[in-house]
Amino acid sequence: MTITLTVNREERIFSGDPRTPLVDVLRDHLRMTGTKAVCREGFCGACMVHVDGAPMASCLLPVGSLDGAAVTTIEGVATMEHLNAVQQAFEDHDVVQCGMCFPGMVMTMSRLFQTNTSPDRDEIKAAMTGNICRCTGYERIIDALMSIRTNEVTS
């Protein structure tokens, strides 16, 4: 079966088993390895991508269901020169450790800040329920995110 989807604004065609999880299509077929498959069961969030703008766990998305959809991956959210605000905060606060969870963190949190420009600490944590980090213990990630709230920037 042939499936057409837009990945990072570019049309891509996949032919193969339509039940293949999107994360494998990205990693193995398109060789875009920024998206990570860590648990493959919806708990860790390392595989998070945006489908038509909304973060979803790509390990649980059969590619066949996405025919015609627009997918944005971590490779598509910023350029090497210009990180998005979430990435920049993570870099500025030096919060990255092994880095495996961060593509997913960035995808989830970038979306959160689009929908709520001044989330409080609890809201950030609640939004992070589906993104696990084994290295950092979270709080410094959250400190970084707190710094880009609009009221933080303006005040």
Binding site: G42, F43, G45, M48, A54, P55, M56, A57, L60, L61, T108, A126, A127, T129, G130
Partner: peptide, 9 residues
């Protein structure tokens, strides 16, 4: 239930 991404799916 679950987490935000799963609730969306």
């Amino acid at each position: 239930s679950a987490n935000p991404a799963i609730r969306r799916m």
